[in-house]
Write a protein that binds this DNA or RNA. Structure first.
Lengths: 212, 212
DNA sequence: TGTTATTGATTGATCAGTCAATCAAAGATA
DNA sequence: TATCTTTGATTGACTGATCAATCAATAACA
């Protein structure tokens, strides 16, 4: 069986298995044995490649972040206007693979781990900052900096809030409904800054423009 | 040492110690020994009164919920108008003791545990439902039911989102800023339903009315 | 005496991490 | 081509530590 050049394959398999195991179990309390079994290798091999469980976890978070970044970059290319870029950012956050129960559970578990591990905390802060600065870039083209900062904070909070509520799975809000809710918030916040000659600006309520 | 009638005292001491330990550690990975030490008793006594670690955790969540309920009831009594009740609900959510880092960390940890334990999940759903129905009661007096449901969802998401972002402690938003952000959202959403003869209805932006 | 409170000591299970050994392939040598 | 050497891949078996849970024993009360 042993072919050479297995390292990258095994590393990827183990990271993916970690994510899957954590997602299924909904917690970081997963054993190296479970992960290794899921990846189809022995626990000893996982230690061989990653040194420790903590390092495997960190590698897994990095992979989550990388996936999110890839999705975001893809969603933002060829999108020019600030308002459309904002919509793209929101759409990515609630995109199917990011909003899947296992992914949400994994994110949640990592937030808890961030309370203990400085390294995990740093990684999650990177995510928060990236979201924030993506939002700010576009918002500052649409309104004054103070308002941009405030609105970015609100949108980010709403995205994270819809995420965590998803994790409970009581009265789950769908992906499209989440997008709608966030878009409505954005529309309302931006309305005072719209040029008044645009149509529809004073419609009483924007909430039902998109399908639920 | 042994006096009779210790049971209620010990139970409370252990539940409080559990909350404190989880809050400090930022995770449910706390040992019975740590909890017992924090409460000033032996680990065996914790088992004696609660039977198992899981039951002690559940009792701790119940106590969190009870505290929240007490705060909410207190905040809502003598508050009559729907709009003021909404403000009271928001204020309670970000009240100092609820927004303290240890409390936030504990809530977060319990959200993760809800992925594994049906009982914990049920308890957290109770919280989510209570928040939702409190919001709905007032909102339905201010706007049509469809909009009330949508706005309640948005406010709840924003509250939970500000909470979870607090747990990361990067660029932490203060309690007052969180209240402001949520209130602004509410104001904007409700504006279309305000009676037009009220003053200030069309002011361009409500964001700086309260101190940051 | 019987009941409640309390603990130290112990058990049994679980797990992360280690290690020595095995296996297969890729050169290297002749 | 046949044989030796090296190196990467892989595992089973083991260790040491940790921890929830149990229990028998003790101490204070009624």
């Amino acid at each position: 069986m042993p072919r050479i050049g297995m390292e990258p394959l095994r590393r990827k398999a183990l990271v993916d298995a970690t994510l899957r195991t954590i997602g299924q179990q909904g917690s970081l309390d997963v054993t190296m044995s479970e992960i290794a079994r899921e990846a189809g290798v022995s626990p000893a091999l996982a230690h061989h490649y990653f040194g420790s469980k903590q390092q495997l976890l960190v590698a897994t978070i990095r992979s989550l972040l990388a996936r999110l970044r890839t999705d975001a970059v893809a969603a933002l290319e060829n999108v020019e206007t600030p308002r459309e870029r904002l919509s793209a950012i929101i759409r990515v956050s609630f995109q199917a693979d990011q909003f899947a129960p296992e992914t949400v559970a994994a994110w949640l578990a990592f937030y808890v781990e961030a309370q203990r591990s400085e390294e995990v905390r740093r990684l999650l802060i990177i995510y928060a900052r990236r979201l924030r600065s993506n939002l700010l870039d576009s918002l500052e083209r649409l309104c004054p900096p103070d308002d941009a900062a405030r609105i970015a904070e609100g949108v980010a909070a709403m995205i994270d809030g819809l995420y965590i509520r998803q994790s409970l799975r009581s009265a789950p809000i769908g992906s499209t409904a989440s997008v709608t809710l966030t878009e409505d918030y954005l529309d309302l916040q931006l309305r005072p800054f719209l040029r008044q000659d645009e149509p529809g600006t004073l419609a009483p309520n924007p909430s039902h423009r998109r399908g639920e």
